[in-house]
Amino acid sequence: MFRELIGGLRITMRNMLSKPVTIQYPEEQRPVPPRARGRHILHRYDNGLEKCIGCELCAGACPVGCIYVLAAANDPAHPVSPGERYAARYEINLVRCIYCGYCAEACPTEAITLGPRLDLADYKRERLVATKEDLLESWPGFRPTAAAPGRPDPAPRSELAAPSPTAPVARSATDTA
């Protein structure tokens, strides 16, 4: 009996002396595998135009119906995307999304991909419905287009602007605040 008791104590002591496996989460993060499917990113072309043309194929392909797209016609003088059509509203319910990546498969212009960002917690449920501003790749000198019809201009949420998929995953602690 004592051998077993001592054996148990030895195991716990050995554990105590070994390095903890804890990752100090917001400050340090595990490296994300290159093909991980995290929060979506809406991409732009090199000239700043949005790749998304508001075709709703992502919404059609979505098995859970978490994508809402409302398209509108481009103003030829100030186009948002190349061609006639762009997404005036683009919303993804990140809580309902199952991150299957079908939207990226369906996208004819490779406008939407699933990025490396996996930490999606928030204090407000409403903020987990990502708007187009949240999902869109940031762009220096980007001038947001007029707010979508029937919807007030959303408050800027620059801290949620997604990094590009190739950017390093380590971020500052304020990123997740």
Binding site: N15, M16, P20, T22
Partner: peptide, 10 residues
Amino acid sequence: KVSARIQLRL
């Protein structure tokens, strides 16, 4: 703290 270390935590 001790329990955490025994369980490989911090």
